[in-house]
Design a protein around this nucleic acid. Structure first.
Lengths: 231, 231
DNA sequence: TCCGAAAAAATCGTATACAAAAATATTTTG
DNA sequence: CAAAATATTTTTGTATACGATTTTTTCGGA
């Protein structure tokens, strides 16, 4: 058990903000003023700045000199490129898992989808996050950390894209399709697995239209994420 | 004309350090003390810290709380995973370029390899960097920025790996093979292109793993000198 | 001499201070 | 009244300050 030390404050703020973005609580374009965030999290701007640098290097926020940071707003062009690479990497994930996935792995996938089912219908931030985390879990099961990292990054960026361009955030990932993917993996049916994944991502990708924006204000959103106890 | 503003100091320091790592001037394990760097670049620790955070999020440096930062030392396991994903992504690059590459693109590749030839034999940091940048240029020509980003990241990490595990840093990338790749792209011969790229990366990769056990830790060094007193 | 504990130095983590730039409000001018 | 000009406030960029933690050094005792 590698009892890693408590992360530095900057990392914690980074994680919280990141989750807020993944759950689409922080919407694209939202301005991220440094003292506002610092006040919410009870830290100084120094720390907030670190978190923002991290987020920027993941392309989750855009920063302009002397103008501060905003939650990134991928263009449709970028969105397409992101989805393309996501397709590419998740196909690699599927190929690897079909070839070799453990029983335990399949079980954890089942468990995850069960959890998705449980919060289903609520259509809230949690269900959005879980949908993304299914794909991250798949990547984790390959055992390749780099692959997992990239997929995780792309999933979060896709969440941004959906927040921008999709009007119905409901069923961003059909839970049913997640189950089909698991089944195909269980059957070691690579063609089925790949085609379902492609269809699945395609469906997500397909929803690209303009959406009206209903923004929460920064303070109330951050208040929720400032004290979230579950890592 | 996008006259982008001058980057913030943190970004500049980050870029400089990054290049130093790519050129293997900063070797894996090198401690990166904050004031030492700050003094060198004429900036405060605040700025250096930002640069280190950036590098850390790219996995080019490792940071331990209260213990500072070091140039990352990928394990053999990580090295293997990195190469695997690099294979995967560079294959995607090849597939895309065979399908559609412009004449201008081919010309810029030629120009790059010419440059590689020119500094060849010198075997210095510049040639190491150019070798890596050939692959980054390939990725750029696909027009997909995300793909390019990831390849660029992986190339730099591979430079780290070679610095760690390869004893002869010379010709980390055979210029000749670069030319062969260009030719295959010109011929739109996807099989040739893929196979050359695979061989090319495999060669680089192979050099790394075979010498994996000769790290300069005291134990193994003493062991060698204990039984073979050639010095 | 060698080992361990205490003291000193070096280094990091974070908050704060202040200058520079941008955004906003106010006044002036036509 | 509108638009330009100026003053004010806000916000960012960077340096510095200071407590906390780690590393190194010193030194007394076995």
């Amino acid at each position: 058990m590698t009892a890693s030390k408590s992360p530095t404050s900057g990392v914690i703020v980074y994680q919280r903000l990141r989750r807020a973005i993944l759950e689409q609580a922080l919407k694209p374009g939202t301005r991220l003023r440094e003292d506002a965030i610092g006040e919410q999290f009870g830290v100084s701007r120094t720390i907030v700045r670190q978190a923002l640098v991290r987020l920027e290097s993941e392309h989750l926020v855009d920063t302009q000199r002397n103008r501060g940071a905003c939650v990134a707003e991928p263009t449709l062009d970028e969105a397409e490129q992101i989805f393309e690479i996501r397709h590419c990497l998740e196909a690699e994930v599927i190929r690897r898992l079909v070839q070799r996935i453990s029983v335990i792995g399949l079980e954890s996938l089942d468990a995850h989808v069960d959890q998705e089912d449980r919060v289903r219908g609520k259509d809230g931030p949690v269900s959005i996050r879980l949908a993304g985390e299914f794909h991250i879990l798949l990547a984790e099961l390959t055992g390749n950390k780099i692959l997992c990292n990239y997929v995780s990054e792309l999933v979060t960026r896709c969440s941004l894209i959906l927040a921008m361009y999709s009007r119905s955030h409901s069923s961003d990932c059909a839970v049913d399709e997640h189950r089909q993917i698991i089944q195909a993996l269980r059957d070691k049916d690579i063609d089925a697995a790949l085609s379902i994944m492609n269809h699945h991502l395609g469906a997500v990708q397909g929803r690209a239209s303009l959406s009206g924006d209903d923004d929460d204000n920064l303070q109330s959103v951050l208040a929720r994420y400032a004290e979230d106890p579950k890592a």
